[in-house]
């Protein structure tokens, strides 16, 4: 029952959980996006250097 009550949030479940879910999505996106970009630009740089070596 306690777990159910927790998810029910006194009738405000939709508002509370949507807020937290939205925050989670935005925060995770802001972690993933810079990491992908870091990897990509590193790879591009390495490719360029390899070309220059030849």
């Amino acid at each position: 029952m306690v777990v159910q009550e927790f998810f029910h949030m006194g009738g405000y479940a939709f508002y509370v959980w949507t807020s937290y879910a939205l925050t989670a999505v935005v925060l995770i996106f802001n972690v993933v996006q810079p990491l992908i970009r870091k990897r990509k630009s590193k790879r591009d740089l390495i490719m360029r250097l390899r070309r220059n070596l030849r």
Partner: peptide, 22 residues
Amino acid sequence: IRSRTEILEYECNSKWVSDLLN
């Protein structure tokens, strides 16, 4: 993390970047 990537792209022609990657 963002700044580091930015600097890497920014300084892509400088020697220390190529040294680092080499």
